[in-house]
């Protein structure tokens, strides 16, 4: 320390010029620091601006529709016939909800089993196979899911059901179920792993079997996290577009069954967005459907946040 000090005083630059240069350099350093700080902050604010801009721009086009069509006639109208001035979006809403429900019905049990296997049963070697496999499932582009659905699943359903085409909600539900697996499994596995081990050990020490502990202790304790995984899978499924559009058959009516052509909000938007003139009621109606999707997604995010709060409160209570 003292050596440093002597070194410092030995340098004869404490002249006016040297000091001025040094202060200026230091000033500049602080200025660039402030600029960087400003840029970091601006980047973060850009996210807020983006979501606000999406809400405003999509909302504005939707509002233009609602000057011509009553919102309730849009939301609950059963007939979609833009050429006759009828903009009922109920067929698409029903299609979206049915496809999503079916996807969860198939995907959640399968995904929960996968998560339990990964978190509690798999050997390290099996994990080394399963984990990359699930990442690959997440990485497959949705058009490729759609293409496999169209060329393999739809013909399969046609052959085994006796229906004319095989298109419809069943095909969409199965494809979506596979597509939500990665989201659901990774989140549910995290939730299962987050359960404190003492609880599990306590249960096993009471003489329960491995499965009794999993079913009666682990899953109830991890429930808020598993519910959050389900809600996020729902958000993923309801917003999925390409794969669904390719296997649905695209008929804008409330489907009478699972193996008849149907439509969803997303599939109708992607089909019509390029072919309807901007500003026309038919085009604005697509934005109104987009707004509906946006509000559903935001609602689901808020629901996830609520379950997450519950989860942290639960863990705190457990301790």
């Amino acid at each position: 320390m003292s050596a440093l000090n002597t070194g410092r005083t030995a340098v004869p630059t404490q002249t006016g010029v040297g000091a001025a240069v040094r202060t200026r350099l230091r000033g500049r350093r602080r200025d660039t620091g402030a600029i960087w700080r400003g840029l970091f902050f601006a980047s973060a604010i850009f996210l807020v601006i983006s979501i606000a801009a999406i809400l405003v721009m999509v909302g504005r086009q939707a509002a233009a529709l609602f000057t011509q069509v009553r919102p309730l006639a849009f939301l609950f109208g059963r007939v979609w016939a833009p050429e006759h001035g009828l903009y009922g979006a109920l067929p698409f809403l029903v299609g979206s909800l049915a496809a999503t429900g079916l996807a969860l019905l198939i995907g959640v049990p399968l995904g929960l089993a996968g998560a339990i296997y990964l978190a509690k049963l798999a050997t390290p070697r099996a994990q080394r196979v399963m984990r990359p496999a699930i990442e690959l499932l997440a990485g497959i582009p949705s058009v490729v899911y759609g293409w496999v659905g169209l060329t393999a699943l739809v013909p399969f359903i046609r052959r085994h059901s006796g229906h004319v085409t095989g298109f419809g909600l069943l095909a969409a539900g199965v494809v979506l179920a596979v597509m939500v697996l990665p989201t659901f499994i990774s989140l549910a596995e995290d939730a299962l792993r987050a359960v404190p081990q003492d609880i599990e050990h306590g249960s096993l020490a009471l003489g329960t079997t491995r499965w009794q502990t999993i079913a009666h202790v682990l899953i109830p304790a991890a429930w808020p996290g598993i519910a959050a995984a389900g809600i996020l899978s729902m958000a993923r499924a309801i917003g999925e577009t390409m794969a669904v559009q390719m296997v649905l058959g695209n008929s804008p009516v409330i489907p009478a069954g699972l193996i008849v052509p149907a439509s969803t909000l997303t599939s109708e938007i992607v089909l019509e967005m390029g072919s309807t003139p901007q500003g026309s009621p038919a085009n604005n109606a697509l934005f109104a459907m987009g707004l509906l999707l946006l509000l559903i997604s935001l609602g689901l995010i808020i629901a996830v946040r609520a379950t997450r709060k519950e989860a942290t409160a639960g863990v705190r209570q457990a301790h």
Binding site: L47, V48, A53, T241, S297, L300
Partner: peptide, 25 residues
């Protein structure tokens, strides 16, 4: 928390809605 909420919300927006947004903007 506003920035975090915005990030999470943006992550949940369906890609087709980004498509609508990009088309109009």
């Amino acid at each position: 928390s506003l920035i975090r909420l915005a990030t999470e919300s943006l992550a949940s927006v369906p890609s087709i809605v980004f498509g609508l947004f990009g088309m109009i903007v």
